[in-house]
């Protein structure tokens, strides 16, 4: 390197370091899924807001798809001590670790924050005889073969049907869950009257519910949600509370101060107006939780997921 370029590099370094300490932070965010999916969208929304608000610059998003995110998780585990790397993850990954018997689990990485989520709804076709969740549960108890459609086996939708079965007193091993590879196919199966009921995130059914083609019987939220005219499962006597949440983790082996920096950056992101606007346009529910609270939540969620997956017979 000659003197001129060295001087240039030095001045560049100084000028970026000058304005504010936080702007030193440059980040790489791994979306452990293909472009376009939920984790990818979350990662890119984080990228946009962090850069626009000057929380971190530059923020780079990259995709490591495969196996419910566990391939990305293994890669994160191998980047020990990297304080500039984040990975988007969520409940689906907690489940995939169990069903894929992944070698790396979430106790081996550094939890940073839970960001957003979406509650699940149980819907029936508009022409269905079931008017309430109680009607559906009664019919289900009488006929365990009642078909429920949802996403892939072991995913959030499957877990919800399992939790509903337990709350309704139906044998989880006998339930007839019909998995489809995409949310669209679940919708088609319900609209086409090919199953008794369907389960997915509220967003996937929203248009059809508002148009009156589907009847939403219950939502898996702990309390009624603003703007969502669907009664909670709890209010109908079924003690089910499940959110398809998404969060952020960092590699293992980062220092306490590195972790604090990352948590602070997420706190700042969450407090910004740009993030609130993003939540609104995307219809994401704010489920923010960071620091030690999220550490505990993650542990509890892993235990609960394992239990549900055992009940529905996917994990031994």
């Amino acid at each position: 390197m000659n003197v001129k370029t060295a001087a240039l590099a030095l001045s560049a370094l100084l000028s970026t370091a000058a304005p504010a300490a936080a702007q030193n932070l440059n980040l790489r965010v791994m979306a452990p899924a293909s472009p376009g999916g939920g984790w990818d969208q979350t990662s890119r929304a984080i990228q946009t807001v962090m850069q626009d608000e000057g929380i971190a610059k530059p923020v780079q998003v990259f995709n490591v798809p495969g196996a419910g995110g566990t391939i990305g998780l293994a890669q994160l585990y191998n980047s020990k001590g990297d304080g500039n790397l984040l990975m988007t993850m969520g409940l689906v990954m907690v489940g995939a670790i169990q069903t894929n018997s992944s070698k790396v689990d979430l106790s081996r990485v550094t939890p940073i924050a839970r960001l957003t989520g979406e509650y699940e709804v149980i819907v029936v076709p508009a022409s269905s005889p079931y008017k309430t969740l109680g009607d559906l549960a009664t019919a289900w108890k009488a006929n365990n073969a009642l078909a429920f459609a949802g996403g892939s086996a072991g995913g959030t939708d499957h877990m919800l049907v399992g939790l509903f079965a337990k709350a309704a007193g139906v044998d989880t091993k006998k339930m007839n869950y019909v998995p489809f590879s995409g949310g669209g196919e679940t919708l088609a199966a319900v609209l086409g009257n090919q199953v008794a009921a369907g389960v997915a995130g509220y967003g996937e059914f929203e248009a059809q519910i508002k148009a009156g083609k589907l009847r939403a019987l219950g939502i898996s939220a702990p309390r009624a949600q603003a703007g969502i005219p669907v009664p909670t499962m709890k209010s109908q006597g079924f003690n089910v509370d499940l959110a398809n949440w998404r969060g952020i983790v960092a590699p293992p082996g980062i220092s306490g101060s590195q972790k604090a920096t990352l948590v602070a950056a997420m706190d700042k992101l969450h407090a910004s107006k740009a993030w609130k606007d993003t939540l609104k346009t995307r219809n994401w529910t704010d489920l923010y939780m960071s620091g030690s609270k999220f550490d505990v939540f993650l542990k509890l969620e892993a235990v609960r997921t394992r239990e549900i997956l055992k009940d529905i017979g996917l994990v031994k």
Binding site: G36, Q41, G203, A207
Partner: peptide, 26 residues
């Protein structure tokens, strides 16, 4: 219907959602 039947359609659906639009009867 807001029903993606191919890989590209699924991405287009995500694009609609990015703008806060929900394809469907409405």
């Amino acid at each position: 219907l807001g029903l993606p039947t191919s890989a590209t359609a699924a991405i287009l659906l995500a694009a609609f959602q990015q703008y806060g639009l929900q394809p469907g009867p409405l």
